[in-house]
Nucleic acid binder design. Structure first.
Lengths: 155, 155
DNA sequence: CATAAAACTATGGGGTCCCATATATTTCAT
DNA sequence: ATGAAATATATGGGACCCCATAGTTTTATG
C-alpha cells in the first residue's frame, strides 16, 4: 500500500527538494548546485584531478569535466598541468571561489549535510548503511551480482 | 570525520547508481528512466492529468509534460481531452505501453522499490521518515522568502 | 626500443530538470 | 454577464548527466 511505498515517495521528495534548492542557490550565488559542490571539493582537496573529482562527487569524469570548465570560466577555480603526468590537470579553488562559497551557506549540499548532521549518530549511520545497500542493489542486478564485494577502490 | 559524511556519500552513490541503471534500462527498453516511471504511474492511475502526474512523480508539470509527449510519440501512452475541463488531458498507457513495462523488470525505479521492500518493515518506515525529514529541511530552511516572489507550490 | 594497451580529459548526442513565460480555459467577483 | 484572477499545459533557456568516442600521454609488453 502507500505504506510500502512511503520511502520511495520520500526519496523523490528529497530529490525534488534538492533540485529546487539548487535553483534558489543559483539565483543567489550564480553557481549551480553541481558547481557549488565541485568547488567545495576543490577547497577540501586542493590539487585533485578531474578524474579524482569525478570519483569524489560520484559523477562521470566527462560530466565533471564540463562543470570544471565553467568554474574556470567564472574564475572561481584554476588548473595547472601535473608536471609528473601531462595528461592531468591539478585543480584549485581561487580566492574568489572561496569567497563565493562563503556567501552560499544555504546551498543544497550544505543544507543536506546539516540536516544529516542533526540526526542522532546512530540514525545517521543506519541511514548511511541503508542508502549504501540500496545503491548496491540498484547497481548490482543486471550485471553479475557477485556475492563477493566488488573491488572497492574507495575514494 | 568520514563518519559524519558517510550518509552524504551514500546518497550520492545511490543517485549515481540510479542514473546508470536508467541508462542500462534505456538501452534494453528504449524508454528512459523518467519515461518508464511516468508510464508506470499511468498504468497504476489511469486517466491522470499532466499536473497530477507531476505531483505523483515529484517533478514540475513542465518537465513531465515533455516526458509525456515522448510517451505519446512512442505510442506507449494516449491522451484524451477531459470533457469537463478542456484544458486537461486524461492520460492512459496503451497496450503496447503495458507490454513494454513488463519487459523492463530491472528498471531503476523497480529495483529501488524492490530493494526498499526487502528492508525490514521497521527499517523501511524509519528510512521513509528520515528521507522526508531531510526533504523538509532542504526545502524549508534557508528560505528567507524575503517577501519577494513566493509562489506557494505545495504538493 | 617500439608498439600496443591503458589512462586522462574533452566533445557531442539525446534526455531530464527547473524556472520563466505564453496561451487557452475555467472560475470568481463585481 | 464580463472582465480579472487562477489553473492547466506547452515552449524555450541554460545546466546536468551518462555514454560513446576521440586525442594525448603514460605504462606495459614483446
Amino acid at each position: 500500500m502507500a505504506e510500502r511505498e512511503a520511502a520511495l515517495v520520500a526519496w523523490r521528495h528529497l530529490l525534488h527538494a534538492v533540485r529546487r534548492r539548487e535553483r534558489l542557490a543559483e539565483q543567489k550565488t550564480g553557481l549551480t548546485g553541481a558547481q557549488l559542490f565541485a568547488l567545495r571539493q576543490l577547497v577540501t582537496y586542493p590539487g585533485v584531478t578531474i578524474g579524482e573529482l569525478g570519483r569524489l562527487t560520484s559523477t562521470d569524469a566527462s560530466s565533471i569535466s564540463v562543470v570544471v570548465s565553467r568554474l574556470l570560466d567564472k574564475g572561481v577555480a584554476q588548473r595547472v598541468r601535473d608536471p609528473l603526468d601531462q595528461r592531468r590537470w591539478r585543480l584549485h579553488a581561487t580566492e574568489a571561489g572561496v569567497a563565493r562559497l562563503e556567501r552560499a551557506p544555504d546551498s543544497a549540499d550544505l543544507l543536506l549535510a546539516d540536516a544529516i548532521a542533526t540526526l542522532p549518530a546512530k540514525s545517521r549511520s543506519t541511514l548511511a548503511r541503508q542508502l549504501e545497500a540500496l545503491a548496491e542493489a540498484v547497481e548490482g542486478t543486471g550485471q553479475p551480482v557477485n556475492e563477493e564485494q566488488r573491488k572497492a577502490t574507495r575514494d
